[in-house]
Design a protein around this nucleic acid. Structure first.
Lengths: 346, 346
DNA sequence: CTGAAAGCGCTAACAA
DNA sequence: TTGTTAGCGCTTTCAG
């Protein structure tokens, strides 16, 4: 096993230590450890044995400095507690696992200054690429990304001018399509329930697309309710209660995410509101976590897994200037589009 | 703005560039950029202006090599899609945000070999500390951690022999206490529903503690159902249906996590099973995400936020050999302990 | 307060 | 197939 000398602070081992222990030059040790260049089986074995028995862990800092190659990919996302981003991460990891690249995650909490700081911090490690959520960034952030000289992929939003590559859906379009489906379903008194966060650009764009498409159909959002804080079932319940108290005539509720949408659904069921007859519901995201609810909420899948995969592939292949726009997929579930049934019973 | 010369691959800027642009020695530039040592206001201003206008981003690789100081903390967790780990991360970030340390996340997918690989990879960047989930690791992993010469905090499980520091709860104890509460509630025909994963040591330990405490009360787990795959409401429903079909006489179901527990709860309600009269239910974790369900599931909070905070503090303060055992907190909710009410009505 | 020299631990490039 | 020589871009140390 590892050589545990007395408890003094042991200096980390270096290539030189392995070199001495194996009687092979540092350079050759380096080659063995990186599987680079031809090395005889004999020396190879000697070196590996020495490295293993010493417990040598290479110093990538020195390696990266010498080779100016860093196998890190910076991934910058607003939050980990949102369920959406971990899924993107899964897609990214899935692809990077087949390469020697390693994702490094930074979290911004939806704050531009934080994003700037995290970005600066990560770029200072000279990663091989950056995957960053959203297409809205501070001037300083954009400048850093533009001049970093590495592949940059902005993900999850294609409405805007990307710095380099972009992968995701158009949230305006997602909003529009949901509006069209609702109109088609025969609903007319439409309420919106969403987040207050002015910095959640994607939610904002969905809302814009939504109202725009409603307007084209001669409709508008009748009433709305905003909240701040995490998305949770209970929030959805409360908001729905408040909104319906204020505007009892609503016949459709569009939630800005599935979690609060599910809360709204539970509220409707508890209070005996017939869904989707008397009231239609829809959320956003396609969170399968909620699959076991009594009714399946209508939603719009944003292709998070595919987004992560595609972004990672762009980085892995060192591509630039790609644009991959995914199609948001409407899932009707059990809460949208049965208005006619209700009308018949009315 | 940044000087955008023609599109040729620009060499990243170095201290030397800033030095030349500002007419100040590299050394002094370095001091300004790090706020180290005394520098006159005049030079200070010159340097900052030059750095800013060039868009200089320091190279931490070189800095780290020269100073052998790295402001990274390796955080190694099994999964991001589990809801539990993001919450721990939140606690970690919260504390590290007040320092100059940066968390770097690695994911193992509950696989020891993956853990070993990720650990090796991260240690090769010479981080200032390691926070790692669980207390079970491969020999190689333990050896790496033990000889890294940095603070190591194993989190979320205190049942075992830690390498350095440990923060978390005893899952055996959590299982025992839940068993006691169930016994006290008057339930006797107890079913267990959990994950198949033999590598989820914490779930295993809870189960062991659970059966042990039941045994002490002269009871045993009457029937059980295992599954693999992600935790989701629908899984909970299916498992509950299967288990109750097989063993209709059960009067309590203990789920290994809140998500499947919630699914079980929904199933019981849908099929008209009186909870907690005819059937008691409990999960594990205290996921407030589910707060808005019709009934609140009994659960055991594992103090994830506090765990993250405490672990980060140990790293930030460079402490060694700490042991912080948190107390799992039983939350009765609405699904445990009203057996007597039912008995009266029976 | 500022600067010059040396070197962190590794790898590119070349030599043997 | 193996070894030697120079750095990579910074910071430490010491001198002014």
């Amino acid at each position: 096993m590892t050589d545990h000398s007395p408890d003094e602070a042991r200096r980390p081992l270096t290539l030189r230590d392995v070199s001495e222990a194996s009687g092979v030059s540092e350079m050759t040790v380096s080659r063995v450890l990186r599987n680079r260049g031809d090395v005889s089986q004999a020396t190879r074995a000697k070196v590996l044995e020495a490295a293993r028995s010493l417990g040598y862990v290479p110093n990538k800092i020195a390696g990266a400095l010498a080779s100016s190659r860093v196998n890190l990919v910076a991934v910058i996302i607003p939050s980990l507690s949102n369920m959406v981003f971990p899924e993107v991460m899964t897609g990214i990891s899935e692809v990077l696992d087949d390469t020697d690249l390693q994702p490094v995650v930074g979290v911004t909490n939806y704050r531009p200054e934080q994003e700037e700081k995290v970005l600066y911090e990560m770029l200072s490690w000279r990663p091989s690429g950056v995957i960053i959520a959203g297409i809205e960034h501070s001037d300083a952030s954009r400048a850093m990304l533009a001049s970093a000289g590495i592949p940059v992929v902005e993900i999850m939003d294609t409405d805007g001018r990307p710095i380099d590559s972009v992968v995701g859906i158009s949230h305006r379009r997602a909003g529009r399509e949901m509006a069209k489906a609702i109109v088609k379903g025969g609903y007319t008194k439409i309420g919106f329930l969403g987040t207050k966060m002015p910095l959640d650009h994607r939610a904002r764009k969905r809302f814009e697309g939504f109202t725009e498409a409603l307007a084209k159909a001669g409709l508008e959002v009748h009433d709305q309710e905003f909240y701040s804080g995490g998305s949770a079932l209970s929030k959805g319940r409360e908001m729905t209660a408040a909104l319906l108290e204020r505007s009892p005539k609503l016949d459709f509720l569009y939630f800005s995410n599935d979690m609060i949408g599910a809360g709204g659904l539970l509220y409707c069921r508890d209070t005996g509101i017939d869904v989707p007859g008397r009231m239609g519901l829809a959320g956003f995201n396609g969170i399968d976590l909620l699959d076991g609810l009594p009714q399946k909420l209508a939603t719009m899948d944003a292709g998070r897994l595919d987004t992560g995969r595609a972004a990672a592939r762009i980085i892995a292949e060192g591509r630039h200037g790609e644009r991959i726009e995914l199609t948001p997929r409407l899932e009707f579930g059990d809460t949208l589009g049965r208005k006619t049934v209700f009308d018949a019973e009315d």
